[in-house]
Design a protein around this nucleic acid. Sequence first.
DNA 1: TTGAAAGCGGTACCAG
DNA 2: CTGGTACCGCTTTCAA
Lengths: 326, 326
Amino acid sequence: MVTIRDVAKHAGVSVATVSRVLNSTGYVREDTREKVMQAITLLNYSPNEVARSLYKRESRLIGLLLPDITNPFFPQLARGIEDEVHSQGFRLLFGNSDEDLKKEAAYLHTFTQNHVVGMITARTISDDETYEGLGFPVVFLDRTSPQYPSVYADGREGGRIAAQEIIKRGSKQITLLKGPPNVKPAQERFQGALETLSGANVDFQVMNTTSFSFHEAKKWAKELFEKHANTDGVIASNDIVAAAILREALQLGKSIPDELQIVGFDDIPQSELLFPALSTIRQPAYEMGKEAAKLLLKYIKKEIVQNKHIELPVTFIERNTTRKVD
Amino acid sequence: MVTIRDVAKHAGVSVATVSRVLNSTGYVREDTREKVMQAITLLNYSPNEVARSLYKRESRLIGLLLPDITNPFFPQLARGIEDEVHSQGFRLLFGNSDEDLKKEAAYLHTFTQNHVVGMITARTISDDETYEGLGFPVVFLDRTSPQYPSVYADGREGGRIAAQEIIKRGSKQITLLKGPPNVKPAQERFQGALETLSGANVDFQVMNTTSFSFHEAKKWAKELFEKHANTDGVIASNDIVAAAILREALQLGKSIPDELQIVGFDDIPQSELLFPALSTIRQPAYEMGKEAAKLLLKYIKKEIVQNKHIELPVTFIERNTTRKVD
DNA sequence: TTGAAAGCGGTACCAG
DNA sequence: CTGGTACCGCTTTCAA
């Protein structure tokens, strides 16, 4: 491994000088700078991040904590974050929390022990004390937080829109899925939809689904049609569940969207490939990730931030599990 | 930040002693060990990974390079890796390469600069020189490599099985999708299927699809039925493309699987939620990730490894885009 | 069984 | 404009 000392020796200068040209700090005469640069390229030297990190007490690493990368909503987020962060020269220390306090604590520990300059967390359970006194900026993603900077989509509005659109298209006996009680964004969608449904001239029922997983989704779908065979509109808690319901409905021979309309939530890439293609409420996941990264980077660079809370719009993506209106 | 010196002072010993109890190296009398432990818990001390990493020239970080986490096959891999690695006390430095040599080089650089103890790469383009002289073990995932340890599924066999199963179920005019030419596993599947198809009593055509992306998938699907309207069996290069084809076929009013059979590849979680549920060749992605991590960890711990190449079996998952046989 | 001290590879202060 | 050097926090000889 070639060190700064090797470079200094080769260039016939001191390590201090090499450090200066490396970081473009302080004065360095042009010709010595060039000597140093030559030595650097000659030796193919590149500074040791760990040593730098030790002295400066900060690395170029950013912590990223997601509930579960296996949930199709998160890869988009992660990608948005990575693209932004990478373009600014930072790298990601990544972990899945499973919304498990123990794992989360382990990662927070890792992050501090490795001198990350900041972190992004998409945890949705609401117990913010865990994040106190961390010593580096934290951005919450996919949920609001009064104290912490955060980036999120307007879930409540999304819920409202979902309900409005399905009502507008003629469903009269709507089933609203509740989604995991501890996942805040899910509950906001739910509340939004509930709000609109309550005020509208339709019948509706709430079904208490408690998870998002692939496995469970099939279960909810079955249960839904057993309990509410006559429903003619479903507002699902996310696209996975919506896909499972669509599947079950087709299985039962229901015609979509004529007999039954379905609206999902998230707009994961796969939703477009379903048949009929899923109508859904889109959350701009990639952009959310990107915005979160930008926001964090501002804190890291100690720029002044105007809005510590960034809300991104949700939009109704009309595809073919809802009827057309004019 | 509380350092080893603080602990030493509190315990009335030297930093060397604290280090010894921390690492359980060398001799330390039981009662001094206890004094130290008390000081540690009292001060809530935990050692600085960066300092440790600098001296030892190795961290507890593992590099993970995936082509694109947004491709639904990779989150499973990533999760398998993370679970294993995390359980053994290691953490992940993660990046997407987009199969781009520049980005890849940037990450290799990051990994070395941050003293990773090893890395896993799922890159599929075959230019192994990039990985020479890295100074830490590398495990290739999702593809073979003669020199490097690697974990992969038997793609060729998968291709054969796909072809056998679709033939067995009566398709006579089969369309085989080629998949991205630079993605090795895709080409192996292709070759396997081609091999079986060539030797069988069926007509078939090869369609040259060059990517896996969601966006392109729809295009291939359209193109497929324009070019080969009379095809009665499709072997897709992965489940995304298969989903797009299923979608297009249903759109065109084809009855699945009676008129047209479709076999995918990968068995991503979503495939089960399609209607009809997708028959596919399963690659055990999670297990592959886990095995890759285990293999790497063996190298890291300098254990003797029996097989540097681990091949996992692929299996035909019979669902409803293929007909039943008895 | 313990402590002093020399690094690991950088950064930054201070003197010249 | 440049060099010497202390120091970041930990590990590991070496000597006591």
